[in-house]
Computed example of a mutant assay.
Amino acid sequence: MKKLILRVGLLLMVIISTLSCSKKNDDDRNWSEELKNSVWAGIYQLTSGAYRGEQPFSVEFNADGSVQWSDITCTRPASQWAAVGDTLTITFPNSTTVTSILSGDRLTKFVSGPGAGLVINEASRAALVTEEKLVNAQWAGTQGSFALTFDFIPGGKVTYKKGGEPGVTVPYTIAGAGIRISRNYTPGGGKDYSVLLENGSVFKGLDTFVFGLPPETTYTSFTVAKQ
């Protein structure tokens, strides 16, 4: 019995020591340097407007303290970033802020300042998309109740196929940790933005489709994974 108690005690000491070292290492990280030229991606929601559901975004923290924000609308400056300890603050052009806590390769505990107009649900460290990460692989998943596939072609093009529709080959553009696809129809058209998550194996995106007179816009989330 004494030997068992001794073994349990030693095991607890090892666990406590390991956790203490991990906490110390995380506390010692110099985030103001580590975040420079890094890319992060995640999911956010607007607090006003026609669509308030989840949508993807990516953000680039430049070495000069500026921020590049990409989503389905466009890629644009988001003013400044600063890290004090493990607290990250992003300041937008209208002087509103979003703060979060840096924890390993994830951002947590988001707080949106008054007038920010958005709520960030999740974000993790990502990487800039390159063509090499996309081609020579089948990407398949779902958009709503429909099957969805992406087949990337060298030269910045992708064959996009949803459900039983014939595939259409269109250009795509790289924007941060994601890609933007535009599809033009007569009448109407659609565009997507999706970010590459989970070590480059899964795209999570939002599709918008405009159709009809007067025009109406539908919004549908989608996920495709590398096969």
Rank of each mutant, 00 (worst) to 15 (best):
T87G: 02
G141L: 05
S182W: 03
L11C: 13
K3Q: 07
T142R: 15
A123Q: 10
V59W: 12
E132C: 04
A137G: 00
S22F: 00
N121H: 07
A50K: 11
R125A: 03
P154N: 15
T87M: 14
V170S: 07
G164E: 03
E198F: 07
P56A: 15
G49Y: 06
S182R: 00
L206M: 04
P166I: 14
Q68Y: 08
P187V: 05
N30A: 08
L11Y: 11
R106A: 02
V168W: 05
K161F: 14
G85L: 09
Y172C: 03
E34P: 10
S48W: 09
R125L: 13
P114V: 13
G65P: 12
G190A: 01
V129M: 11
D192G: 07
F209W: 07
G113L: 00
E216H: 00
Y44N: 04
G104V: 09
V135G: 06
G200E: 10
D64S: 01
T99H: 05
T218Y: 02
S17C: 09
L19S: 02
G49E: 11
L35S: 10
R183K: 12
E54H: 05
A126Y: 15
L128G: 11
T169M: 11
K23R: 14
D192S: 03
N62W: 05
T96L: 08
R106Q: 12
E132I: 01
G141N: 13
